[in-house]
Nucleic acid binder design. Structure first.
Lengths: 338, 338
DNA sequence: ACTCGTCTTTGAATCGTTTCATTTGTTACG
DNA sequence: CGTAACAAATGAAACGATTCAAAGACGAGT
């Protein structure tokens, strides 16, 4: 009683064969009402709970989908995760979330773990170069969908948002305000970030006399943003950029904190500031933050859909869905456009 | 090759017995160097990956810990979850996170799921009345630790923060500012929230002429806060409270958005506002938000420690750890104290 | 050459399900 | 009354790892 009862215990207690108990659980129609009642009663009395490990072992597959994100603390990812969970639940699956924290070894750790768990599939927002590993996974029958990053459709499916376009929109917006000396804050080693940077550089290239410096941040968190912000505050005012584009809202909020802390810098008058992701907290910032909105629910939902397609096709057909980002203008970039 | 190789395949390929392969994996010392090399080579060639289901089945236990939180989107919980994950990783376990969304049926769903997975233990931030269910779990050998809620030490362990004290601190602070007509915003059906409310009421009882109305919000999110805020804005100014205490920062930020949107209400002059949790975003709000800080890392870490203790004692000894919250004063409650 | 002890290796048994070919039971019909 | 048709129940055989008693290999000591 103290230890969990097995299906065999239930069978003994209900005076039936183990197969019958299994049928009650999985194919209730095959069992007569009378037997069913008896078995269910025994299940309740013994407090029987299915052993998922045994079930999986037999089935050869779990009902589990692995999701590896760059940072669960980032509302962008928790929103994507939530959407994916909901979509998966509707299909009778469960999503396990792993947080790589932008660390390639933690990412690898979770990939190994999920492989051992024989997950149905993997949703991955990659840190490093994972193309080879994904090939391996596919060979081993673990379909993978890249999330928030475009993939070759030869290799695997992906859902993403056009980061170049988003970067372009952000920088173009800053330039349209009349700002010429821009700064980009982020960690370009992440592919999404470098795409946003490229887009921004394209916009800068279109406007004569405009420049953009790149400030590499230590991570993509509020804290990292604060550090960059402090560095900006310490600069000679003439050396400060006129506008700052942060590769996500967390960074932007951190930068904002530092800039506004000592009231030496005014936003947007002295420095216009724009983030990326349009998280819920952007609107309620000290200075409501302009941002680039991404459709998080659609990302999460589509990721699950694509995974289902991969499974159906046996991992042969891949599809890349790309959403379009949207500029959201708020006070942090208010000001007379030229 | 396309399908995953089993330990038996490896054994054949390396010309050894299955037991030897298992030993290479689990007790490398028992195996001679020569054999080990050969087996490892076969493992690499066949791309063998351990099947966790089979391992668990045999072991009777998984290396998994279940964590059910009220809302992963809430930075408070994602921070606790992160700390718990780190602590668990150090012990060689993995944390699976389930989001109940403050819904008792989703909570039950995850409890069932984790039970089927035969988790090592459960960390639970409960929505409804779970005491009975916890008794059942304990009987079935699943130790449970309540997170962010005090428990009878007869039944199970718990890590929590003194919510009454936190509520008292918040309300007392508002009263000390000279405010007399307070409002409390939250969902008192959640135990943590009702404790905070009780603490606040204790403070109000200490100050003559002071009152506090209770505004029941639909959830504990930014959106729910916005709704309450809108209702306050629509009130006749004379009917509005002089100070508002929200049972968490998300609600407070939502209320703040509504109040400051139309600039009809000034914070803190017209309404002083305080939240709870002191999430990272509180400091960078339109009006930097006063709050009650909780030690999230300590909560997560301690939860795992207590779970380990439960396991060692076989679920007989329980312990309740209670941390003390801390008032953090920012601009949203600035003003001359009386 | 033989025994003893140590170090390796073996392979059958086990964990708890699901599956499926068989057996058993029941009803209907000629 | 015999049997065909169908429904319900059975139980042995997987699934893939770990465990452990037993067997095998090998060198040292007598």
């Amino acid at each position: 009683m103290s230890q969990t009862a097995s299906i065999k215990d239930v069978a003994n207690h209900a005076q039936v064969a183990v197969g019958t108990v299994s049928n009650v659980l999985n194919y209730p129609d095959r069992v007569s009402q009378k037997t069913k009642d008896r078995v269910l009663k025994s299940i309740a009395e013994l407090g029987f709970v299915r052993n998922d490990a045994a079930r999986q072992l037999r089935a050869g597959q779990s009902r589990t989908i692995g999701l590896i994100v760059l940072d669960v603390g980032n509302p962008f990812f928790s929103s994507v995760a939530r959407a994916a969970e909901d979509a998966a639940t509707a299909l009778g699956s469960v999503v396990l979330v792993g947080d790589s924290g932008q660390d390639a070894s933690r990412e690898a750790h979770y990939m190994d773990l999920f492989q051992e768990q024989r997950v149905q599939g993997l949703l991955l927002s990659p840190v490093g170069d994972v193309e080879e590993r994904i090939d391996t996974l596919r060979e081993r029958g673990v379909p993978t969908v890249l999330v928030d990053q475009l993939a070759d459709t030869d290799r695997c499916s992906s859902v993403s948002v056009d980061d170049q376009e988003g970067g372009y929109l952000a920088a173009r917006h800053l330039l349209d305000l009349g700002r010429r000396r821009l700064a980009f804050v982020g960690t370009p080693s992440i592919r999404q970030v470098s795409s946003r940077l490229e887009g921004a550089q394209r916009a800068v290239a279109e406007v004569p006399e405009s420049t953009m410096e790149v400030l590499d941040s230590a991570g993509q968190t509020v804290l990292a943003g604060r550090q960059v912000g402090n560095a900006l505050v310490e600069r000679d005012p003439a050396e400060r950029p006129e506008a700052v584009f942060c590769s996500n809202d967390l960074l932007a909020l951190g930068v904002m904190q530092s800039l506004t802390m000592l009231r030496t810098v005014r936003i947007p008058e002295d420095i216009a500031l724009i983030g990326y992701d349009d998280i819920d907290f952007a609107i309620s910032a000290v200075v409501p933050l302009s941002s680039i909105r991404q459709p998080t629910e659609a990302l999460g939902r589509t990721a699950i859909e694509l995974l289902a397609e991969e499974q159906e096709s046996g991992g042969t057909k891949h599809r890349a869905v790309v959403f379009t980002p949207e500029l959201v203008v708020r006070q942090s970039t208010a000001g007379s456009p030229n």
